[in-house]
Design a protein around this nucleic acid. Structure first.
Lengths: 323, 323
DNA sequence: GTGAAAGCGCTAACAG
DNA sequence: CTGTTAGCGCTTTCAC
């Protein structure tokens, strides 16, 4: 049997109430009693049961974090910051990889609500998860609109897209291709696409249907590059796609940046480390994490507060050797 | 106020027990009653409170996952698999980034125990976290020895190291350098180092003290390469270090693989995608995840079972253009 | 300063 | 087939 508060009380020769008081530093306790209790806690190697505490307090200090897959440098960096900040504040993070599947995301939402999480941070792109519509459930979305009442935190994707494309133009590109994920997902990359289409005269946008199949991705990009020998610039909607473009260009003996210039998007620490020569748009990932958590905490502490519904943090163009 | 089981019972005109029974599919219930209850659940949009359930059952279906940082391709891939498997089995994962700091790790351990997790998977390298020694707390360690009674799952690091070094030798390298993390951390990379030192005549091993500071890492590697112009092979203890070697070699105009051959270690999906030309030792990450989870589940279901204490899964040499 | 008692939301004997 | 009751481990009024 696990040691419980009552055992500590018995051992210290006091009542459960008293033990609870020293545990929570509440009310008046004589030094002597406090010491007896602390001694008993140590002797018995007692760990307070947070489940029982949560049940009573109706506060679990749990946060749900729902993202497409943690195995993506952007999300893993975001998750690292979010978890770090939360743990500093005494919150614990439940990790959920939705794999962009609606049924999984719904199941996660139910699970999180059942577990009485104090709030949820969602960075995945499925609308219509009814469970998120629980009244009074604090939610913050990263980089996409979940519903009209849920605050969104993200970076300025439209400006980011413009900066990327303008940079290619400035570098002399005449024929710029854009490669993006599926349109039907309401991802932030759609704003990057829009910027591209607004800036370029004859936009040529390609969609990669399955973002999780890199084999397919490489094949598609090979096809695209073969079909467009005139292309001298690529704006990829994220760095992983840019990396594949780089690889394919290499295989096809297309010299980068001489014949073809490539700009990615995200600028994670991992990319900067593994692909330091990639020109990219860097998102303020740490700021996004901080802002989301602080908004969520605000919503939790103060349920009726009117959080600003949209926050777009500035991005930065990192010029390297691929342009 | 949140809807609770009692509200559902009232609405359906039955007792709480009955509601609980339909929720858990236990005992006999007439179809009529079941339907009334289900209707009430839907009407009220009721979500059972798992906290209360856990308190009663003494089972939370929570798993703690402690790792150095999720923002590392190896750990994020591992975490993805682990979380996926757990969620299939109805378990939820609490993410903990220890950042290799002892005090953080201790705090996480206390937190996890306080939250009554059913088990913990630890992939970080600090021994001496007393809290892990809670009797009857199911723990599985990935890739390192936590204590004599805790099962370890990992890949065959010694053989992996040998394969890497032998490959360099086979490719004609005469002067091979090894670059590793700090020795005092009891990481699995120490076995890779040992293999290197056993295989090479005049081993030259360098330690990078701060694994989180890439600036420092690049500077150190630059110094190493300048000091050893005779070096024609590098065995890096992980792919991130290998990537930095590649970058530095590039800056110093050392041609890879002609003048210098480089082998990394880990072979994550991310590396294969971003650095497809890197020769590396690929770990069976999905297998490691599966094995760890299944061992942990076994320990949870069957506390006195004698799990095999060591499981080492086979690795694979991926030959690419850096050798 | 300290304790007794009620209750957080749910489940499982045990009756009927 | 269904309801009554007690209790999971903790916290908090309210007395003393």
């Amino acid at each position: 049997m696990k040691v419980k508060l009552e055992d500590v009380a018995k051992r210290a020769g006091v009542s459960p109430t008293t033990v609870s008081r020293v545990l929570n530093n509440r009310g008046y306790i004589s030094d002597k009693t406090r010491q007896k209790v602390e001694q008993a806690i140590e002797d018995l190697n007692y760990y307070p049961n947070d489940i029982a505490r949560s049940l009573f307090k109706k506060r679990t200090n749990f946060i749900g974090l729902v993202l497409p897959t943690i195995n993506n440098p952007f999300f893993s960096e975001l998750a690292l910051y979010i978890e770090n900040i939360c743990s500093e504040m005494g919150y614990k993070v439940i990790l959920c990889n939705s794999l962009l599947q609606m049924d999984k995301e719904k199941a996660y939402a139910r699970m999180l609500i059942g577990h009485q999480v104090d709030g949820i941070i969602v960075c995945t792109y499925n609308r219509g998860v009814e469970a998120y519509k629980q009244p009074k459930l604090p939610i913050v979305a990263i980089d996409h609109y979940l519903s009209p009442t849920i605050p969104v935190v993200g970076s300025d994707n439209y400006t980011g897209g413009k900066m990327a494309v303008q940079h290619l133009i400035d570098r002399g590109c005449k024929s710029i291709i854009h490669i993006n994920g599926p349109v039907e997902l309401e991802t932030p990359t759609q704003m990057r696409r829009k910027a591209y289409e607004d800036l370029v005269e004859n936009p040529i946008t390609y969609e990669l249907i399955d973002l999780f199949d890199e084999e397919y991705e490489a094949v598609s990009i090979r096809r695209i590059l073969k079909k467009h020998p005139e292309a001298d610039g690529i704006f990829a909607s994220d760095d992983l796609i840019a990396a594949t473009c780089l690889k394919v260009a290499n295989e096809l003996n297309i010299r980068v940046p001489e014949q073809l210039k490539i700009v990615g998007y995200d600028g994670t620490a991992t990319i900067k480390r593994l692909l330091p020569h990639l020109t990219t748009i860097q998102q303020p990932i740490e700021e996004i994490a901080k802002t989301s958590v602080s908004k969520l905490m605000n919503l939790i502490e103060n349920p009726d507060c009117n959080e600003t519904l949209e926050t777009f943090l500035p991005i930065e163009l990192l010029i390297n050797e691929t342009t």
